[in-house]
Design a binder for these strands. Sequence first.
DNA 1: TGGCTGTACTG
DNA 2: CAGTAC
DNA 3: GCCA
DNA 4: CAGTG
DNA 5: CACTG
Length: 520
Amino acid sequence: MSKIFQSIRAYIIPVKLSEYEVGAYTHLIEKHGGKKCVKQGESTHIFTILKSSTRISRNVESHQVPVIDIQWIRDCDKKQQLLPIETYTIITDRKKLRSSSSDHDALVPSLSLLTTSTATTSISSGSNTDILNRRFKDSPPEDLPFSDESGSTRRGEGENVDLAPGFINTKYECLRPTPYEPKYNKKLVSLLLLLERKRQIDNELKRSLSYRHAISAIKAYPREIQSSKEAEKIIGVGSKIAEKIKVFLHTGTIEEADQLRYDEEFRTISLFNKVFGVGATTARIWWELGYKTLQEVLDNAKLSTTIKLGIELLPDFDQMMSQQDVKEIIDIVTKEVVSINSECFVVPVGGYRRGKTKNGDVDLIISSKNAENMRGFLNKLTQRLIEKDYLKHKLWHSTDIKNLAHAERPSSVGGRQQFDNFEKCFCAFLQPSTGIHRQVDLICVVNPDELATAILGWTGSRQFERAIRDYAKKEKNMSLNSQAIHFEQNGKKNRFVVHSEKDAFDIIGMPYLEPEFRNC
DNA sequence: TGGCTGTACTG
DNA sequence: CAGTAC
DNA sequence: GCCA
DNA sequence: CAGTG
DNA sequence: CACTG
């Protein structure tokens, strides 16, 4: 029995917590000399598992006391000491707000303050704030990603109607190697990518997906396509897309796609859509509200904190990383991980592992052969990275409730789930050499059994993951996610033991594909 | 004509 | 739930 | 939009 | 958030 | 208003 919580009178917001969980937290508080109170009015701190401040506000009577992430209790217990409460504070109390800013915080800020003081562009240092003011009216057309014209110089459809020998014609992209950059049909692929994106921002998800299938197939196709008949034999290319290919073979372009390269609406919505937290719907709403640049959105729209952050970070996040940049970050994180626990290790996944030369983010899996090492690890790690000034913002992080169930097992009922679900944290990481914020996704794999499937799942590509899960389900009656492979047999779920990535391919019964060829 | 990866957080 | 993220 |  | 009771 | 999907 310690005294670290001696001066704490805690109120726990019961929402989203089971009775058992409330009991477990109460136990922790009392174990360290704190008191739990039933009435908020008598408390010095309010604890909650909720993340949304609006949601929290509904459960808080008055903001006289700070609202703290309940995780703090667990972390203090683990470390047996009072941890700095600031990073866990979700809502600061009145007194603190008073001292730092204006009197009535909840009331509307005056007009003058709104436009001028919002220029707290403290984030951008070595970044091109240019992108925030980018607008597309009368601007030069968008570049095509794979625009090597050399293949499409000779116009017109050829005679050849047969598929290229050696091409694996399947609806499952995961069964054939797909390079990141196509060798052939580059311009066609670039144009189809525009159409895919158009369907996507129009929220035509199924159509978008269809283009994705066709694009993957064509990227993997081992020669220039010579006729639309040939194209239509490719599984994933149906009558509509074949028709577009036919036009492309005759004219060297696809009207609808080429137009998009100049289209102000399309390009503006596409840009908005790059912001973390902004999907097709929000992007279009902004467009319909008349915003033409992100700066206008920033100045005038009411934004959640995540999206505001997302916009402010875009000038940095939009700058692609070389493999050297990625290595630098991997080395830093690895060093910190190992110094916390030398048995832990880092596995780079994502596009970097697939050999992409330019990457928009860094995905890192952190694990250990010993599950015990991993309990609460991500919190330790992020805290260190914050202290060392690498980690600047958490864009998103998961809450691992099952970890608690495990930690408190002695008093818990036996049949509790294993502590599966990873802890994840997507953050803005300041790269020292360039001063640019990079999106780093940290994924903590607690259970060693889950490592292989986690690596498989986080290596991607997105399309590869869809295909392999679809294949496992439809063809093998197995279900795959980033934690396990299951096989159903007379209503019983059996979990396979997956020792390695190769093992996973064997279990599913498909040929192994090196990460470089999973760029579907 | 149904289904399109599977799962978790936020508002 | 709809929207978003991986 | 495409496949089964 | 929008919808429900 | 408190809660749910």
